[in-house]
Design a protein around this nucleic acid. Structure first.
Length: 547
DNA sequence: TATACATGCGCC
DNA sequence: AAAGGGCGCATGTATA
């Protein structure tokens, strides 16, 4: 059953549809949205809400204490169906771009709006839902892209719920870490004392009392005058230099990064009431990964500050990481039995070493990363032929994805998300040698993108299925729906890692559900193929204790 | 003064 | 050791 919510000039209306998409009832005006949704969630078990944009409907429902089980996010689904090779012949994919192709409008600030953004684009949610259902139904295997649409939509629910619940954050712990490393919080925009001391050491060593190390060009000049031949001021390049200024300089850079990215200003801006509430953007990356905006860089949370993520008293954090997700995804995508086998004992990289393909775990790792990213030189590039010999199907799979990109073709993930079409840099008989070189370099660059797209994108699909399944399992652990204060719930997501906040007594159960959901996700994507997705789980008091 | 771009670095 | 995929943000610098 589908329950379609629509917002028009006259207010909110609800239409009930059966599984074929036929209207069973409505549209009916909705007076009290939260109450209506809450009732339907109780009465119509398993119903799927259909709405234009989860980020516009769901936060309000959550604030009213209402959670929903399942939904279809028409805007996110449009983006997938518009581009997918599986639906390329559909009316939806061929229609002119319209409001459904636009990103979520920025929320209106207070006062009169210049234009109305609360209404749905164009011909309404019903029209779009029908178009989407037709596009899915016309594919050879509707369940495949159907799963992707469901998972993407579940992700939107989860993103809203994680923002609502928030990641538990101890401001006092964070402040103590900063004070310890940098010195106490200074007044105004002065540098903290420990940081200032390190800076003075740099200045003294270089004999430049007014050096501003935050200016790359100034720093580059200063290092040059000190006789240091460097192309840039990047830390990794400086590391290899033997000079008394380097150690304090690297130390300063580390401190400056912490201060500017996750210092007191970050705390003031992003943590309130003991919670960090990131602004996730499901589907925000072309590959299907999530992005984040504002909200303090949720997907770049440095390990350095994770100790400030502390479970509430009587609660635990269950931190779960899908081990070597992308290589395992590649093994499954390519049905490379050898690579699947290498991962079956636990550590995929150790398995590769055991097969004799390479001699150390570090080599296995760098070679695999190179294969998935398209490395051509360096250690990674040198090891690639050995990997190709041991795992021909896996390597052929990414090579073919790369060649397709170089030819200007699109590639598609396991469930049906397709890459954008690259800008083809063609050349004709008037092209100079430099033009040809440039065009080929651009083609190879796009090939590296499509090579990685199939792996990263399918890994993102696996992660969505994992998280969606876990969410359902956590909802079944017995807490009252809509209550984030008594039951296990997701609080953080980072591509292949999730954090669940739960009462002490539920932690072991949560660990079990996390692993079970991972196994489910593997079966959903790859069916009977015996590929395993082991999960590393840590039950901890603070996030810093994990890994 | 506002905006756009480059650099550097954090995450996967 | 620093090549190869995807991001976001703070800061400095250049340009309008």
């Amino acid at each position: 059953m589908h329950l379609l919510l629509s917002r028009g000039p006259a207010g909110v209306s609800l239409t009930e549809l059966d599984d074929s998409g036929a209207i069973v009832r409505g549209p009916d005006d909705v007076v009290d949205l939260a109450a209506e949704v809450a009732i339907r969630e109780r009465v119509s078990a398993g119903a799927r809400w259909v709405w234009d944009d989860t980020s516009r409907w769901y936060p309000g429902l959550l604030r009213a204490g209402v959670r929903v089980g399942r939904c279809i996010d028409l805007r996110l689904c449009r983006a997938i169906l518009r581009n997918s090779s599986l639906t390329a012949a559909s009316a939806l994919a061929r229609c002119a771009r319209d409001g459904w192709d636009e990103p979520t409008p920025e929320p209106r600030r207070g006062g009169a709006a210049l234009f109305e953004v609360d209404e749905e684009p164009d011909d309404g949610a019903m029209g779009e839902f029908v178009r989407q259902q037709a596009a899915v139904a016309a594919t050879a295997d509707p369940a495949r892209i159907g799963l992707l649409l469901a998972a993407e939509s579940a992700g939107a629910l989860i993103a809203a719920e994680m923002r609502f619940a928030g990641l538990p954050w101890r401001t006092d712990v964070h402040d103590a870490m900063l004070s310890d490393l940098l010195g106490p919080r200074p007044a105004g925009d002065h540098r903290p004392v420990k940081m200032q001391a390190v800076l003075e050491a740099v200045r003294a060593t270089l004999d430049m009392p007014t050096l501003n190390p935050d200016s790359p060009s100034e720093l580059l000049g200063a290092l040059g005058r000190a006789g240091l031949q460097v192309q840039s001021t990047r830390s990794w390049e400086l590391q290899s230099i033997d000079h008394p200024a380097i150690r304090p300089l690297l130390e300063y850079k580390k401190m400056a990064r912490l201060l500017s990215a996750n210092g007191w200003n970050w705390l003031d801006t992003n943590v309130a009431d003991g919670r960090f509430r990131p602004d996730y953007v499901p589907g925000g990356v072309v590959t299907g990964r999530w992005a984040s905006k504002g909200g303090g860089g949720a997907l770049q949370l440095p390990r350095q500050v994770r100790g400030a993520v502390v479970a509430d008293p009587g609660w635990k954090l269950v931190v779960a990481d899908a081990a070597q997700l992308e290589p395992r995804i590649l093994a499954a995508l390519s049905s490379d039995r050898g690579m699947v086998e290498a991962g079956s004992a636990g550590d995929l990289y150790a398995g590769i070493v055991a097969s004799g393909a390479v001699d150390t775990r570090a080599h296995a790792k760098v070679a695999m990363l190179g294969a998935m990213y398209g490395a051509t030189s360096g250690e990674s590039g040198r090891l690639l032929p050995r990997l190709a010999k041991a795992y021909p199907r896996a390597i052929a799979f990414v090579e073919e994805a790369a060649r397709a990109g170089e030819r200007g073709e699109i590639v598609t993930t396991r469930l049906g998300r397709s890459s954008p079409r690259g800008a083809s840099a063609g050349y004709d008989e008037t092209a100079t040698a430099a033009d040809v070189t440039r065009a080929r370099a651009q083609a190879r660059s796009w090939g590296r993108f499509t090579r990685n797209f199939v792996v990263q994108g399918t890994a993102a699909e696996w992660a969505l299925c994992w998280m969606a399944g876990l969410r359902g399992r956590l909802l079944g652990l017995g807490q009252a729906r809509g209550d984030f204060t008594s039951g296990a719930h997701l609080v953080f997501f980072l591509h292949d890692e999730v954090v669940v906040h739960c009462p002490d007594r539920l932690a072991e159960q949560v660990e079990h559900e996390v692993r079970a959901a991972a196994a489910d996700a593997g079966r959903l994507l790859f069916g009977a193929l015996p590929v395993e997705f082991p999960v590393t789980v840590a039950i901890v008091q603070d996030y810093g204790q994990a890994k």
